[in-house]
Design a protein around this nucleic acid. Sequence first.
RNA 1: CGGAGAGUGGCGCAGCUUGGUCAGCGCGCAGCGUUCGGGACGCUGAGGCCGCCGGUUCGAAUCCGGCCUCUCCGACCA
Length: 483
Amino acid sequence: MTAQGVTPQSDDFSRWYTDVVQKADLADYAPVRGCMIIKPYGYELWENVKAGLDQRFKATGHRNAYFPLLIPMSFIEKEGEHVKGFAPELAVVTHGGGKELEEPLAIRPTSETVIGHSFSRWIQSHRDLPLLINQWANIVRWELRPRLFLRTLEFLWQEGHTAHATEEEAQEEAMRMLDVYDDFVVKEAAIPVIKGLKSTQEKFAGAQSSYTIEAMMKNKWALQSGTSHNLGQNFAKAFDIKFLDKNNELQFCWTTSWGVSTRMIGGIIMAHGDDKGLRLPPRLAPIQVIVVPIWKTDAEKESVMDVVQDIHRSLTTADVRVQIDDREGLTPGFKFNDWEMRGVPLRMEIGPRDVKSGSALLVRRDIPGKKGRQSLPTDRLVPGVAALLDEIQENLFQQATRFRDANLHEASSYEELKEIVKEGWVLIPHCGTAECEDKIKAETKATSRCFPLDINKNWSPEGKKCPVCGRPAQGLAYFARAY
RNA sequence: CGGAGAGUGGCGCAGCUUGGUCAGCGCGCAGCGUUCGGGACGCUGAGGCCGCCGGUUCGAAUCCGGCCUCUCCGACCA
């Protein structure tokens, strides 16, 4: 393993990543190539991601529902851009009940179409709006080159779908949910992200405009970690989603969709991991504190375990996710390494020495060496642990932010871009054309990530030109290698 | 679908050029004992028709032919 604060080369990194995913017991390959088995530890991590997002969705007035896995092909074909974008990666069911189906059924690659169909029946009046729906589901996209969590044939996600009376409201919704994602990723996953607008080429098939949060991985590649789309009236028109407004006039709705997937897990692994394996942010870690009891004799075992049980009880009562590693026959050293690999943020060592002194040794995962360890009196453990977990959360975010900022660059010429993009992200005035992006991709492997919202707010493209093709710039855009 | 590589106990691999004492190593696993504050050690043991089919041969993991699968790099990619 080679990923520290230091940057690994990308092929090493690939190996490191696969290694960590499997050794940390998060996921495994499935019998069907490209599919993934999420193991309990990985799934618990996902459940914490879900909880954090769901809480925010509820707070913004969204309700969960569930729509079918199978979608009639004719639905997918209703929106021209949509079918063009998804046709190549559809899995299609052609047989059912032993007979060939009259109409093939697509396994959902996303649910705009089925949900659009329902929306058209649910919405009659402006009083039915806004309609704010979310679903947790699995979807299938027939990707050619899978990577665990980052791109698999089947994956789990959340997809929000909303309908609004006006274009402004839909736009506000798309931005609100982008902010929700930003808030979640920053506060829970401890990963800094850049919010931005996708270029025409990179936007969702069928969207009017797509927004993204882009995160930087330890190999300096970008990972699109969440997206939010203003679908305009494209799907409303394709699925006849109409309402009567206050003036009794029939109008098409304005819709949005937005999603975050199990890819987020891959992002967490690659944004925080180091040469010892995973480093999980405390707020999402399935196990926040691992207690390793240490003893030599049976008498010691008894007194140590008494203390350990007490501590476990009081931390659990304080809502700390704590677990005792009482596996027999393994040395403490082995256990330390084992839990470090699994990314547990805080380790507590309790042996005869600690019992005698009435304290516990705490070792942080985010700070290597002696600086990361401290002894705390047993009676102050609950507040002490809580404070440490907060500090670790914050420190992981600071480390990730420092790393990212050190690798954000600007370029004023194409030559400069070509050089810098090998080792980071590059901001340039960009024309936004597919032609230009194709050229950059062909020559550097970098793709346009987004037009960052906050930077462009204070920047005028007036008179500025794209350094790659000379066309007028549309805005400042980041280019980077991406997953 | 192109380019490269690999299929041998659960995992990682050696053996193949030169066919026969070749069914091997490390890790892991089971039992017992000693260990235990940074990946412990000893002993004993379980586990493989060497990817599949065919051919050559007295004899094939090894040579020949065909097939299958997987991995990596590309192409594709909400």
